[in-house]
């Protein structure tokens, strides 16, 4: 991560946990001492429409929106959203797709968290930080299942 600002674009459909996953990345970057901003459009997202969320972190972040052509990572929680996000992707953007995961995770409600594990192959934040955040966001057995899903995401070959 040699750049001044890292831009991560999350995209999916209402109900897939896009907002939750992007909130968790925002919090993780914040706890690591980065300046961070996050932007989302979710007015009608509960109704199954497209949802996207921009997370930007680094030394100093101004606009909360990723400029055209500058997303370093696309976390395409729904793969059909890739084409929607195309104008925002950097030429060398890394695109992360559910099909890269264990099919069981790709079909599960924990897909968003497994995708965070996959993303962390690149971001290389401490696993312990993610575990803490997962346990703050979920309770009991659900939290532990999500921790496992996160770890399976980190084991994907890239």
């Amino acid at each position: 991560m040699g750049k001044d600002i890292v831009n991560v674009l999350f995209a999916g459909l209402g109900g897939q946990g896009i907002i939750r996953a992007s909130d968790m990345l925002t919090e993780a970057a914040f706890r690591l001492g980065y300046d961070v901003k996050k932007s989302e459009l979710h007015g009608m997202s509960q109704r199954g429409g497209s949802v996207s969320s921009d997370v930007r972190f680094g030394k100093k972040v101004w606009s909360p929106m990723i400029p055209w052509g500058e997303a370093d990572y696309l976390v395409a929680v729904s793969e059909d959203q890739e084409a929607v996000c195309r104008p925002f992707l950097a030429p060398d953007a890394v695109i992360l797709r559910p099909s890269m995961l264990d099919p069981k995770d790709a079909a599960s409600r924990m897909l968003n968290i497994a995708m965070l594990g996959l993303l962390n192959r690149y971001l290389k934040f401490e696993d312990g930080l993610w575990e803490t955040l997962i346990r703050e966001n979920f309770k009991g057995e659900v939290a532990e299942a999500n921790v496992q899903a996160y770890h399976r995401g980190t084991l994907v070959k890239i």
Binding site: S50, S63, Q81
Partner: peptide
Amino acid sequence: NAGRVKKLLAGDVSADPAGAPGRPPAL
């Protein structure tokens, strides 16, 4: 957004880059 501000400053009134249309919400 930052891109549109750059265009505004440059007097560039061409169409903005656009991706595929997103999925609309539904009942």
